[in-house]
Design a protein around this nucleic acid. Structure first.
Lengths: 197, 197
DNA sequence: CCTACCGATCGGTAGG
DNA sequence: CCTACCGATCGGTAGG
C-alpha cells in the first residue's frame, strides 16, 4: 500500500512539473500563477501543495533536471576518443535534439533560471559554469590540435549555446523545415560558417 | 513657458524609460514593479503616472524603439552596392554594437516583448517578422550569387540573431575580452565557422 | 482533494 | 510632486 501510494505521488508530481514547464515557458515564471497551473491540472490551487512544496520548487526541479542532463552528457563526450570537431558536433546535435524534443523544460532552464531562489540559484549557476568550462576546454583542445581556428573559446561557447536556443523561434513558427533538416542546417552553419569556400 | 514644460516632460519620460529598461532587464517585466522603479527615480510610485500612461507603455516604448532602429538599418544595408556577405557582416557588426552599447533596451526587446499588450504586441511582431524576412532575403540573394553555401535562410537568420543575443552572457561576466575582440571573434565564427580550413 | 481565508503586493486613481 | 487608498491577484496555510 505504502509502495503504491508513493508511486502515485511521484507520478502526480511529475505531471505537475511537466505542465508547469509548459505554462512557465509560455507565460514566464512570474506571470504563471499557481491558480493557472491548478486549472490545467484540474484541481484547486491549494491541492497542488499536497504534491509540491512551493512554486519555487517547481522551477528548481525543471532547471536542475536540465542542468544535470547536460553535465552528464558533456562528461561522456569529453572522454570519447574522437577529434575535437567531432566532439563539438556531437554536443551540438545533442543540444539541438534536446531543444526539439524537450523544448518546454530546456527553454525554462535557459530563460527563467534567474527567478530561482537561494540556494538553488547558486547551485544552478555552478552547474552551468561548470558545463561551459568543459565546453570551452573541448574548443581549446581543438585549437591546440589545429582542428579549430584560433578564436576565443568562451565566445565560441556562447555563440553555440545561444544559436541553438534560437530553435524556440522554430517551435513558435509554422515549422516549414523538419527537425532533421533544422539540425543539419545548424551544424553546417556553426561548424563551417555561412561563407561558401 | 509651454515649450519649456514640454521639453522637461520629454526628458523626464526618457529618464524613466531608460531606468525602466535597466530594471526590466534585471528582473523581468512582471517582477519589475512600479514601486521599484519609482524608488530608483527618487519619487513615489504614483508620481510616475504624471509622465507615463502605464507600465505597459514603458515596455512598448522600449520594444518599439529597438524594432524601429533595426528596421531602419536593414533597409539602408539592403540597398547598399556591396556583396551579400558584406551586407551580412555589416548587419552582424551593427547588431553586436547595439548589444554592447545599448544592452538594456535590446535585451528587453529580445526577451520581454511577449508581455506586450495588444495592439502593441501585434505591431511589434509585425516589425520583427518584417525584419527577419529582409534578413533572410539578403541570405537568399547571397546563395543565388554563390557567395553563401546552400543552407536554409530562415535557420541562418535565427542562428545569427540568437548568437548575437549571447552577448548578454558577456555583459554578465567579468568581460575578460574587449568589446572589439568579441566582435571580431563573433564575425569570424559566424561567417567562417569553427573549423580550420 | 476541497472550502475558506490570510497577509502581501501589485498597477493604478482621486484629489490636492 | 505627494498622501491616501482601491480592487485584483498573488503564493500559501489551516482545517477537515
Amino acid at each position: 500500500m505504502g509502495r503504491i501510494k508513493t508511486t502515485y505521488n511521484i507520478s502526480k508530481k511529475e505531471i505537475i512539473i511537466d505542465k508547469a514547464a509548459a505554462l512557465i515557458r509560455e507565460k514566464g515564471f512570474k506571470a504563471a500563477s499557481m491558480r493557472d497551473l491548478a486549472e490545467i491540472i484540474g484541481v484547486e490551487a491549494a491541492s497542488l501543495y499536497n504534491h509540491i512544496k512551493s512554486k519555487n520548487e517547481l522551477l528548481y526541479e525543471i532547471c536542475l533536471h536540465v542542468a544535470n542532463v547536460y553535465n552528464k552528457k558533456i562528461n561522456i563526450i569529453s572522454d570519447e576518443q574522437i577529434s575535437s570537431i567531432e566532439k563539438i558536433e556531437m554536443l551540438l546535435r545533442f543540444h539541438i535534439q534536446c531543444m526539439i524534443q524537450n523544448f518546454e523544460k530546456v527553454f525554462v532552464s535557459d530563460r527563467e533560471w534567474k527567478h530561482l531562489s537561494e540556494p538553488y540559484l547558486s547551485n544552478f549557476q555552478n552547474l552551468r559554469r561548470n558545463y561551459r568550462k568543459k565546453f570551452a576546454a573541448i574548443i581549446e583542445e581543438g585549437i591546440k590540435k589545429e582542428e579549430i581556428k584560433k578564436i576565443d573559446a568562451t565566445t565560441a561557447v556562447l555563440i553555440m549555446l545561444y544559436a541553438v536556443s534560437g530553435i524556440e523561434s522554430w517551435h513558435r513558427s509554422k515549422q516549414k523545415i523538419s527537425g532533421n533538416a533544422l539540425e543539419e542546417n545548424m551544424i553546417a552553419i556553426l561548424i563551417g560558417g555561412l561563407k561558401k569556400l
